[in-house]
Design a protein around this nucleic acid. Structure first.
Lengths: 220, 220
DNA sequence: ATACGACTTGGCCAGTTGGCCAAGTCACAT
DNA sequence: ATGTGACTTGGCCAACTGGCCAAGTCGTAT
């Protein structure tokens, strides 16, 4: 069911026996497999055996690639599962109101969250797991800092492209945004009311817009 | 080490040998014990054996009180672990600005969160676990609704006691508040930066205050 | 060809898990 | 005293866990 490595049917050697795989490549495949299992059945179901089976490998392969299960968990959280907002930028324009532009950005992010709820759940699970582990506890701190940095970048870029100026530091806004998006995601996972979630986001966009001004209103 | 059922040395009865315990009482004790274990060592460590040990009961007692481990998990999430804001109300006053009053309320809530981080983590763990279980999946929906109801009550009461009127429905504000508080809690669990968390809350209070007006400004 | 190290594999292990149960103990009504 | 039903207990189970390892296979530098 797994190995669709058929093809290569030439006259001499056929069903290519797929020789060897580098340990690095295996690590990558195991990480991907682990994520798939966790999304489908939760973090508790992601045993070393289940992960290997998902990756189409024998159980022994696991501990050749990872020293321990925790090492895989750490690597998984470190390999950021991020959301790309690049496709949204064309919709941003100085002509629109700050609220409209912020709204566009938030909802673009949201539609990606809503499209893959299990990924969000895994993110919470993984974070929670790692926070309990004495050796991995520091990991989320860096992850959080990175995502904060990224969102701050978005805010700045939004300011430039939509011609906005903010009443406070971009980083502070980013913090509020990251935090609120996480909160909305968590609430939505609980009640699964997409309408309510979007309504909260709209309201939040409105509030954040209060911190922004069109540059044209004052200077240009 | 477990059975300290010694004593019974007095002439008749003294160090009450605590005869039997009703199944209900045992359930309550097991729930409390489970919560303690989860806070201390995470949800994964809360095995039936660990819970019984924590409660000072033999392992067999567990399945006399609960049909399964999941049943306990469900019961635990249902037994709301809530935060009481009652002691804070005296600090609310019509004389203060809306922002100040909202700030007071949010920070009061927050100080309780900050005082018991593990409880928050357990709440996330528990929610996440339950969301994966086909039979318990619906549970968080009700929990969320209940806490939303409660916070809505707070918002209304705040309006009455501080003399505020809102620009939108109290429920919408409550949704935003619940969501944001969860988000801030999650972020804080990751980075453990209490200053940043409070700063976010202050900013959020400011924004929400924008949705409120002192009644005296218009009518009275 | 030969050798050597990276890769592969299935089996094994001791420990832990949730759940079950039969035998026993107790409180209380009769 | 005797019965009845709720409560108690320790032991048992099959299933599963993370981890380890020895024997094997393969690729490549020589």
């Amino acid at each position: 069911m797994a190995n669709c490595y058929l093809g290569r049917m030439s006259h001499q050697e056929d069903a290519a026996p797929r020789k060897q795989i580098s340990a690095d490549e295996r690590r990558r495949r195991l990480l991907a497999a682990a994520l798939r299992v966790m999304k489908r059945e939760g973090i508790a179901a992601a045993t070393t055996r289940a992960i290997c089976a998902e990756a189409g490998m024998p159980h022994g392969a696991f501990h050749y690639c990872f020293r321990s299960k925790r090492e895989l968990y750490g690597a998984l959280l470190a390999s950021d599962i991020e959301i790309d907002l690049a496709p949204v930028w064309p919709e941003i324009s100085p002509a629109a109101s700050p609220r409209e532009n912020i709204r566009t950005l938030l909802l673009a992010y949201w539609s990606q969250v809503e499209a893959d709820p299990d990924a969000q759940l895994v993110l919470f699970d993984l974070g929670s797991f790692v926070l309990r582990d004495p050796e991995l506890r520091e990991l989320p701190r860096g992850e959080y800092a990175a995502s904060l940095e990224k969102v701050t970048g978005y805010i700045v870029r939004l300011g430039e492209e939509a011609g906005l100026t903010y009443l406070c530091e971009e980083r502070a806004i980013a913090e509020l945004v990251v935090t609120t998006l996480n909160g909305v995601a968590w609430s939505w996972l609980a009640h699964r009311d997409g309408v309510a979630a979007r309504a909260s986001l709209e309201r939040f966009a409105e509030l954040v817009a209060g911190l922004a001004r069109n540059k044209t209103d004052r200077s240009m």
